[in-house]
């Protein structure tokens, strides 16, 4: 599941993934073919979080491998990211029936896995794809009003954009989505914490 198994953090992520694939904490496990823990670089600077696996993801056990995944790959590539350098996952790790929005109980049951993944990876920036991750991790805001913004909460830096599935058939949303992922790249370039100190150290 995790390609870079020798990288620091890979073992911890594998442990979390092993728990996820056998998880029965909510009813979503009943209909899954495969749970989808997430994949990517265990030391990723950028973590992307979507809503939930879809049909293709459920079939393959990998995140964002369907049509929305193709648009996400295109956006990442255009912005100069490789899929291998980021970490991609979802709020819930099992597919909801008929791709409905996961319920609050399902999200609550699954969130500890996400929090553990965040603690292992410690990304510099967390990109939330669409309304469900925005509502779950930030609050009840409209994604169309919040997209393109960076928000700090609970010690994490979030960047907000549309879910690629919303942008596939809407050219103006697609254009904004591509621009947002480009902006995400610029935010990472601007982040010079690794080369210096931050003002937080002097608070």
């Amino acid at each position: 599941m995790f390609k870079a198994v020798l990288m620091p953090g890979a073992n911890e992520l594998e442990k979390i993934a092993a728990e996820i694939v056998t998880c029965v904490k909510c009813p979503l496990h009943k209909n899954r073919a495969n749970a989808v823990p997430g994949e990517g670089n265990p030391r990723a600077e950028v973590m992307l979080i979507g809503e939930a696996p879809g049909a293709e993801e459920d079939k393959q056990g990998r995140p964002f491998v369907g049509a929305a995944g193709r648009l996400l790959n295109e956006a990442l590539e255009k912005a100069g990211f490789s899929r291998e350098e980021v970490f991609i996952t979802n709020i819930v790790k099992c597919r909801p029936p008929r791709n409905r929005v996961p319920t609050e109980d399902e999200r609550r049951a699954c969130l500890p896995y996400l929090h553990r993944q965040l603690e292992v990876i410690k990304p510099k920036i967390i990109c939330l794809l669409g309304r469900t991750p925005l509502e779950t991790l930030i609050g009840p805001y409209s994604i169309s009003k919040m997209r393109g913004r960076t928000i700090e909460k609970d010690g994490w830096l979030f960047f907000l954009t549309y879910h690629p599935a919303a942008a596939i058939y809407n050219p103006s949303l697609k254009e904004q989505f591509l621009k947002d992922i480009q902006k995400l790249r610029e935010l990472i370039h601007r982040d010079e914490r690794r080369r210096g100190s931050s003002l937080d150290e002097f608070l």
Binding site: I125, T150, E152, L157, L187, R190, D191, E192, R193, G196, S198, L199, D200
Partner: peptide
């Protein structure tokens, strides 16, 4: 306000 990287204010 601080920039997102918290380098400047």
């Amino acid at each position: 306000a601080m920039d997102p990287a918290h380098i400047s204010l």
